[in-house]
Design a protein around this nucleic acid. Structure first.
Lengths: 340, 340
DNA sequence: TTGAAAGCGGTACCAT
DNA sequence: ATGGTACCGCTTTCAA
């Protein structure tokens, strides 16, 4: 408190009025210049004065004031329950964000960790996003969608497994993943197929859909599906592996590659031959799956490009009359390696 | 710009004035009731009427209007270049966010993908966050910090490797990670230690700091450090492995566990004995590292709890006079397994 | 070419 | 116990 020359610490934040004063013009002029408003012609001299003043003051426009006045935002909200975006690969979200930014949206990710259902939707609605894109975890309820729409959201898009009533759904059907995995195992002659369902709560929606898909794939083939719960921990995998032979399974789809790698190692430690005794398949086609021996079979999940999803969002925003559609955003296919 | 195609469906978003009208009270009263303003006493009957009206209309307050009036937000901005949060483990960020929410902040992650340096800082400043916490990637420049402060940010916290001038820095020194890894290898008798530097641009800051730490650890020990670039792809690892013997290294610290697993497999395929011929160590203590054989040695990175970091942020926000400090937020330690 | 002024949706002070 | 009202910072008619 005594050494530095008393900086007026609480110097107030510069507003467009400050810029106007310094440049000797009106606030309106400042707005015109800084926004390059095409419908108004401002002399070059004035433009320079305004720009210089803004620069000197370190003026940054106030987004809240701007959107309050405009009556709408360009905010696209991505709610996330779990931080590393649920079941989506990194490159996809990167591309998605870039594309949205190029379309002049402000992409904001809102961590909804402590919030439940409708409470979360309310919190999102307070920000008046023009669109809400739910990437897998953090699904909105039907009522939540209603709240968002009422608050001005022109597009509520869900990539989750279910169609949420009222949402302009772009459905990414996780059932296809489970179906593909189970079908692959059955095609290769397995008749008793375990399906790992992670205990982690955040993965439940995805896991449930994948399991559902596995059941559907087994339907009418004579093969049976056995759900198995497991946590992402070595011990949990070991416990499951210990009772493996009692289960009498000859194949297992282990939710995703990480769970599959974990389980496969536990089974090997238990002396289970893979794929002889039990075939193993994961999902996601992680690079690391190729490092184990035997190499891990997997289900590759190709998403539509982030760019295309961004364009879809943009279209719905501009024409909210668009009927909720069901776009297929995901292409899945089995990748057979050595574990199946 | 003509963009409102007069949709009849465009029922306007309910405001507190609508609620007031429906409840037959003034806007002030609505505000008092909905915010439970302690300094004002409202009759129970009125409260009920207001609440019912708000409910019926599906009223959600407008965050922008509120913070415009308040003159400040409770927004904590987490800029992220890469979407799944940079080099931080998931549980940490989860906890951090939860804790901030409990302290009544609104946590918003802002994807800064297409933005460069000062441009990014400007974009963040438009949101008038009360605090900005940079979690590793997306470091602000000194000028960026200045812009943020001027725009009203009370705390600019960086967890990156460098102290940014003006930022209330809580430094997470990634150099310690590299130092720990290198020291471990040297302690175990290795004299020529490779350090993998990922080619991925997003990892550069972290990787650079870790490399720097490795150099420092080798200093004066007679051991030498050899930087090696590698991309996160099987082929890149194979290329590196192919010229391994020519490099004459007897140890390698491979940035993190994922790179380490990739490289280790490539080396094994090349016939390099691990750890006999070359010791390998990663960082991050991933579960998957234990699944390979030999089991991967690693550097465990324990962060201060997210809760504590949240409390630090809160303190700086409430007492911005707090001198920029250098907190040690990270505790690292070697975890020796079989690969070293 | 520029300025004055009316709001956007809330909040909080001051009356009543 | 409530209502009236003046703002917050910015955009955008409408006039000059």
């Amino acid at each position: 408190m005594s050494q530095t020359p008393e900086l007026p610490v609480e110097r107030s934040v510069p507003t467009s009025a400050d810029v106007a004063r310094l440049a000797g013009v009106s606030r309106a002029t400042v707005s015109y210049v800084l926004n390059n408003t095409a419908s108004v012609r401002i002399s070059e001299a004035t433009r320079l004065r305004v720009r210089a003043a803004a620069e000197e003051l370190g003026y940054v426009p106030h987004a809240a004031a701007r959107s309050l006045r405009a009556g709408r935002t360009r905010t696209v909200l991505l709610p996330t329950a779990h931080l590393p975006l649920g079941p989506l690969p990194g490159p996809f979200s990167d591309e998605f964000q870039r594309a949205l930014r190029r379309l002049d949206y402000t992409v904001v990710q809102y961590g909804s960790l402590g919030l439940e259902g409708d409470e979360a939707a309310r919190a999102w609605a307070e920000l008046r996003p023009v669109a809400v894109v739910c990437l897998g975890d953090a699904e909105p309820t039907a009522h939540g969608v209603e709240v968002l729409k009422r608050s001005g959201a022109r597009a509520v898009v869900t990539l989750g497994p279910h169609i949420v009533e009222g949402a302009h759904a772009l459905v990414m059907d996780q059932r296809a993943v489970g179906g593909c995995a189970a079908a692959h195992l059955i095609r290769r002659g397995r008749r008793a197929v375990g399906v790992v369902v992670p205990e982690e709560a955040a993965l439940r929606p995805t896991a449930g859909a994948r399991l559902e898909g596995a059941f559907a794939a087994a339907d009418g083939t004579g093969a049976r599906i056995v759900p198995l719960t497991m946590a992402y921990e070595e011990e949990s995998a070991a416990v499951l592996a210990a009772r493996w032979r009692a289960l009498g399974l000859d194949g297992v789809y282990a939710y995703d590659d990480e769970y599959a790698m974990l389980l496969m190692r536990a089974l090997q430690d238990e002396g289970v031959d893979i794929p002889g005794e039990t075939a193993v398949i994961g999902a996601g086609d992680l690079l690391l799956g190729r490092l184990l021996r035997p190499r891990l079979s997997t289900v590759s999940i190709d998403l539509v490009s982030g760019r295309r999803l961004a364009e879809l969002v943009d279209r719905v925003v501009r024409e909210p009359a668009t009927r909720p559609e069901r776009h297929e955003l995901m292409a899945v296919g089995p990748v057979q390696r050595e574990s199946s």
